Computed example of a mutant assay.
Amino acid sequence: MSGAGGRRLVLHVDLNNTVVAADAVSGQGPRAALNTFLTTVTWGRTGTAGEWQWASDRPSLSAPCPGARSYYSRHGRDPFFTEAGPGRCFEGLHARHLQLLEWPGQPDDVFSVRGEDGKSYHLLLPAFFRLLDALHRERRLFSVIFRSFGTDLPRALRAAGCALAGQHPRFPALRDVALPVDLTPGQIRCSKREVVLTKGAERLATREDGRKLYDYFSSFEGIGGFQDHFDWWARNKFSSQGGKPLWIDPHDPSIHHIFIDDNIRLDDADTIVHPQVFSERGSSTPRRAPTSELYDVCLVQTNLLEAIADEDYFLRCVRRCEENYDRYLACAEKDTPTQQWDGQ
C-alpha cells in the first residue's frame, strides 16, 4: 500500500460557506452568508414557554450536550441572525470574522466580491489558496473538483485559474503550480436508477457500471467543477440519499477522495453527501455508507469560522483525513468490515 504522502488526492470542494463566504444564487453577500452559517453551529432548546434558550455561548459543529438542537433546525437559516432576536449574543463573533474576510486594498474584479455594506471581501478564502500552495510545495499529486448546487461555478473557476496564473497578490507563487483549470462546469444528475455526469460531449452513467464515475473522478486532472442536483436532494428531504454522490474504493490505496462541505453532518437524515463504498475488490456495485463511517476520513464538515480565521485550516483537515484513511484502509486489508470503522 502506498502511504498518505504518495497517495493522490482528489478533493471535492463545496463553494458556498466552504471556500466562498457568499451565495450568488440567493444573492447573499458575506454578511448574510456568515449569519446563515452561524445558525447551523449555535445550539439551544425550546423552553416550556416556547422561548429559545441557548445551550452554549460558543459555536460548534456538533451539539454541545444531549438534547440540544441547532438554531437552524428549529428556526431555519436567518440572514439577519446576529442583528435581531436571540442571535444578537453572537454579534461580536460575526463582526470579527466579517472583518477578517475583508479584501485588502482596492477591489479586484476576479478575487474580491462586494458586500452588502459596500466593502470588498475575499471571493475564495485565502485558506483555499494556502492549501493549493502547500500541497504543491510538498510535491503532492492532487486535483480539485468544485461541487456546487448553484450557478457560481464559472466565477470560482475563473478565480482559481487566475490565481494559478500568478495573479493573486497574496499567493504569487501559485504560478508554479502546474494544474490545468477547466473553466466549463459539468453537471451531475441523479435518479433512482442511475447517476449521470455530463460535460460538453462527455456523458457517463452508473446504470451499467457503478464504477464509471469513480474511475472518472479518480483520474480527473487539474481543477474543474460540477453542478450537483439540488432538486434531487430536496426530493429526498435533504438526506444523504439525495445528496452529492461520492464513490470510495478502499481496495484502491493509490487514491484518496475527500469531500469538504459545510452541510456534511453526522445525521444521515440531514446531510449533503451520499457516500458509496465498493466493499469488495473490483465490485461494480457500491453500498451506501453512513456518514459516521467516513467522517474525517473522506468527509469533512467545514467550520467556516475556522476556515476564515486560520489559513492552515483546510490543510489540517486534509492531514487529519489522511491519518484516518490509513487506518481505514488497514481495516479493509484485514478483511475487517469497513462499516465497523469508527474514526471518531
Score class of each variant (00 low, 15 high):
residue 17 N to T: 08
residue 18 T to E: 07
residue 23 D to R: 05
residue 30 P to S: 07
residue 30 P to D: 10
residue 32 A to T: 06
residue 33 A to E: 06
residue 36 T to N: 04
residue 45 R to A: 08
residue 47 G to E: 00
residue 52 W to P: 09
residue 54 W to Y: 09
residue 61 L to P: 05
residue 61 L to N: 08
residue 62 S to A: 14
residue 63 A to Y: 01
residue 65 C to D: 02
residue 68 A to T: 03
residue 69 R to A: 13
residue 74 R to A: 14
residue 74 R to D: 10
residue 78 D to S: 12
residue 84 A to G: 01
residue 88 R to H: 07
residue 96 R to P: 06
residue 100 L to N: 11
residue 107 P to H: 04
residue 108 D to L: 07
residue 113 V to R: 14
residue 127 A to M: 05
residue 140 R to M: 07
residue 145 I to V: 15
residue 147 R to N: 13
residue 154 P to T: 08
residue 158 R to D: 11
residue 175 R to D: 13
residue 185 P to G: 09
residue 206 T to G: 04
residue 209 D to Q: 05
residue 215 D to S: 14
residue 218 S to I: 08
residue 222 G to N: 10
residue 226 F to C: 09
residue 226 F to N: 05
residue 227 Q to C: 15
residue 233 W to I: 00
residue 234 A to P: 00
residue 238 F to D: 00
residue 240 S to I: 00
residue 253 P to K: 02
residue 253 P to I: 01
residue 254 S to C: 12
residue 258 I to N: 06
residue 270 D to K: 05
residue 282 G to F: 12
residue 286 P to W: 05
residue 293 E to N: 15
residue 299 L to Q: 01
residue 304 L to G: 08
residue 305 L to F: 07
residue 312 D to T: 13
residue 323 E to A: 15
residue 325 Y to G: 00
residue 329 L to H: 06
residue 332 A to P: 11
residue 333 E to V: 05
residue 334 K to L: 12
residue 339 Q to N: 12
